[in-house]
Write a protein that binds this DNA or RNA. Structure first.
Lengths: 205, 205
DNA sequence: AGATTTTCATATTAAGTGATCCAGAAGTAA
DNA sequence: TTACTTCTGGATCACTTAATATGAAAATCT
């Protein structure tokens, strides 16, 4: 990108990662420019704005970076090569493990990154809301695919499965942040999936 | 309380309710004193501090008020006269209906009231975290009581039930705020409870 | 009445907010 | 070298934050 001129003295990727950690832990609004600049390597305001544009632009970049890395635990949802049940199980277990890992802030950035917002930052809130909606759609598509493939009965219980999984999925953020371990979440997922199996249809091998 | 002196010109209860609505919608930190004073009836800073002490003191009072009113949807959890399954079902359905009602902000204040916090407001965050822990305990006690009463099998699946219900319960806040209707939540609860029934023991009538 | 108590409106505080300006430093390109 | 581009540090911007100070207004109590 910058082929000429004075080279940047700080590592942009490291700074982005540090910002992600801070936003992840505190959320968008409570995180101040002062905190950000500090954790990004004591960079100056000028350097900050030259490199990232604004606080909101940085947050949007952080979200993209999060989705491309930690957020990939949800990629099974969109993998049509996987059996639907497998896709959902992998997503839930992968998210549980990721969200409860203590090497970074707990919970999911998309769920808790901008949950408290004043009216002037509605756009930031909407950004994450849209991403959550995408997840719900992915879950629903998986369940519908399972029904279409004859792996799941088409009944009232299975019709509610997408909402159950989505609610449980988003609830994990609260639990992980409150200290629930990956082991506990995993056990809960195991039990929750018996709800799927109780409505599964036998497929001839 | 105030028997003598100039009487207060604004309605303290109405002001508290208005503050609750604002905190409920935006969360603790993004809600400014200016917004609060405005929605509480354009009261002056002096009146505000005389009546409520500080922003944090007001929030604590708001939480108590919330627990004493809207938060009562969880009271079945502590009602030992109820059959455990009934206690949990009433709590879930009552919360779902309350959280999705549009006459006030969606979701649960205890879950979303201080989810984004800077370090200096950890105490506020801890206040709500403690309340959520109380809920988890209530759910767990219900399940354990059901097992002790012989209404639920004592197995791995039922051991995970408290965590499932708690995670789902806290997840409802995210769903309700994102627009999920009471009807959808209710249907999800119905299906989720089949997980209980699948592990229920027959009680001789 | 007059003393006391409490609330009110206005102005103001110090600190923090996100964001910009400017002069100089440190590179590349001719 | 000289011209050009980009980054850095520090000062500063206008604005908002939560919280106070001051003095007058409005009630009760003696």
């Amino acid at each position: 990108m910058a082929r000429t001129g004075r080279p940047r003295e700080f590592d942009r990727d490291k700074a982005l990662n540090a910002a992600m950690t801070l936003f992840w832990a505190q959320g968008y609004e409570p995180t101040s420019l002062t905190q950000l600049k500090s954790c990004m390597g004591n960079i100056s305001p000028t350097s900050f704005y030259a490199a990232f544009g604004s606080k909101e632009a940085l947050f949007r970049e952080v979200v993209q970076h999060y989705l491309a890395t930690y957020g990939q635990v949800m990629s099974p949802l969109w993998d049509e090569n996987l059996i639907p049940r497998d896709a959902i199980e992998r997503t839930l277990r992968g998210s549980a493990r990721m969200q409860a890992t203590r090497t970074h802030p707990c919970g999911c950035l998309v769920v808790s990154g901008a949950s408290n917002c004043s009216p002037e930052n509605e756009a930031v809130q909407a950004l994450l809301a849209a991403e959550r909606q995408r997840t719900r759609t992915g879950i629903r598509v998986c369940v519908e695919r399972a029904i279409a493939r004859g792996e799941l009965r088409d009944c009232a219980t299975t019709a509610a499965l997408p909402d159950i999984f989505a609610t449980f999925f988003h609830g994990m953020t609260c639990e992980a942040r409150d200290g629930m371990t990956s082991t506990h979440l995993d056990a809960a997922i195991t039990s929750l999936l018996t709800l799927w199996d109780a409505n599964a249809l036998l497929t001839t091998p």
